[in-house]
C-alpha cells in the first residue's frame, strides 16, 4: 500500500494529565479522501495537530511521504496544508497579502498566477484587496482554504471544514475537495457531520476517547454494519401488526399506512420474498414499496453508542 501518511502508535498526554491519544496507528493512502469521525473531544484535532507540527507527541512516530515529521520537519511540512477549525485570520491583512504570506512561509517562490487561480476557484478574487475582518464568516473560511493551498500541498487537512457553514458553501467545498482529489491531492477531513463523510470519503476512521476504534472503506463499512429497510406503503391503514406476521421484525408507521421491515444488509437471505407472500395471503393491499440503506450516521451512532454503554453502566454503578 502506498501510504502518504503513516502514523505509528501515537500517544499524547497534555500537561493537564489529559490523555488525548492512546496509541493511534493509521495509514493514509496517497490520493484518497479520508474522513476522521468522532464526537467532540475524541482526539481528532490533537491527531491532526501532531501530524502538522502544532503539538508535540508524547510518543510514537509520524511519517509524511516517508519523512519523519520531527526529524525531517521541513520536507514533511512542505507537503502539508492545514485548514484549521477556528476562523483564525490576520484580521487586518488583505486577502491577497495573507495568501502571499502563506506561500512565502512555506518557502515557495512568488507565483501570482497560481494564487490568482486559487482565489478565483474559491470565489475570492473580487475580494482580494479587502481586509479579512470585513469579510463574512463563509468568506473567512474560504480564505483559510486558500492559504492552505497557496504552497501547493500534497496533503490537505480540513479540520471540521463545514462547521457553521451554509448549504451553498458546503456544496462548493465538497466540489472543491473532489477537484483537488482529481489533481492527486490527498485529503483528510475531520467532521462530526456524518453526511459529509458519507458524501465525500473513500475511507472512514472513527476515533473515540483517543482511540481509533475503526478504519474501513466507506462502502464496505456501510455494507457490513448497515441495515436495510423495506417500507410498504399500504392502501388501507392497519390498526396493528397482524399476528400472522409476528415472526418478522416489523414496525407500523405513518398512522398504520406504512409497514417497515428491517433486515441485515449482508445476510444471505433477506426474507423479503417470504414477507411479501405472507402480506399477499393476508389480503393486505400494497400501494408502493421502497427499500433504503441505513445511513452512516445510524452506523456511527450505533458504533459509538454500543461501546459507550458498558462504561455508562459502570459509572452509574459507581454513583449508586
Amino acid at each position: 500500500m502506498d501510504s502518504i501518511i503513516a502514523v505509528d502508535n501515537l500517544t499524547k498526554t497534555y500537561a493537564s494529565g489529559f490523555q488525548a491519544l492512546k496509541g493511534v496507528s493509521l495509514q493514509i493512502r496517497r490520493g484518497e479522501i479520508f474522513a476522521l469521525l468522532g464526537p467532540n473531544g475524541a482526539g481528532k484535532t490533537t491527531l491532526i495537530s501532531i501530524v502538522c507540527g502544532l503539538v508535540n507527541p508524547t510518543g510514537g512516530q509520524v511519517l509524511v511521504d516517508g519523512f519523519d515529521n520531527r526529524r525531517d520537519y521541513r520536507q514533511a511540512r512542505q507537503r502539508i496544508g492545514l485548514v484549521p477549525q477556528e476562523l483564525t485570520n490576520n484580521m487586518f491583512d488583505s486577502v491577497w497579502a495573507t495568501v502571499r504570506l502563506s506561500r512565502g512561509l512555506f518557502g515557495k517562490p512568488r507565483n501570482d498566477a497560481l494564487l490568482e487561480q486559487i482565489l478565483r476557484e474559491l470565489s475570492l478574487w473580487d475580494k482580494r484587496n479587502e481586509r479579512i475582518m470585513d469579510l463574512s464568516g463563509g468568506m473567512k473560511r474560504r480564505v483559510l482554504i486558500a492559504k492552505a493551498l497557496a504552497h501547493e500541498p500534497e496533503v490537505l487537512f480540513l479540520d471540521e471544514p463545514t462547521a457553521g457553514v451554509d448549504v451553498a458553501l458546503r456544496r462548493d467545498m465538497w466540489n472543491m475537495v473532489r477537484r483537488l482529489q482529481q489533481r492527486g491531492v490527498t485529503i483528510i477531513l475531520t467532521t462530526h457531520y456524518i453526511e459529509e463523510a458519507e458524501e465525500m470519503a473513500d475511507r472512514i476512521g472513527v476515533i473515540r476517547q483517543g482511540e481509533l476504534i475503526l478504519t474501513e472503506d466507506k462502502h464496505s463499512l456501510m455494507q457490513q454494519l448497515g441495515t436495510r429497510q423495506l417500507t410498504l406503503q399500504l392502501q388501507q391503514p392497519l390498526p396493528a401488526i397482524p399476528a400472522a406476521l409476528a415472526e418478522y421484525p416489523l414496525t407500523l408507521e405513518e398512522q398504520g399506512y406504512a409497514l417497515v421491515y428491517t433486515f441485515d444488509a449482508k445476510a444471505e437471505q433477506s426474507g423479503i420474498a417470504e414477507l411479501l407472500r405472507s402480506v399477499d395471503q393476508l389480503g393486505i393491499e400494497v400501494r408502493d414499496l421502497r427499500s433504503s440503506q441505513s445511513s452512516l450516521e445510524d452506523i456511527f451512532v450505533g458504533l459509538v453508542h454500543s461501546r459507550e454503554q458498558p462504561q455508562q453502566a459502570s459509572t452509574l454503578g459507581g454513583a449508586a
Binding site: 521541513r74 514533511a76 477556528e86 483564525t88 512561509l105
Partner: peptide, 12 residues
Amino acid sequence: TGTIYEILSAPV
C-alpha cells in the same frame, strides 16, 4: 488570535 498555527505548521 490563533494564527500562529500557520507559523508552526510551516517548514521554518
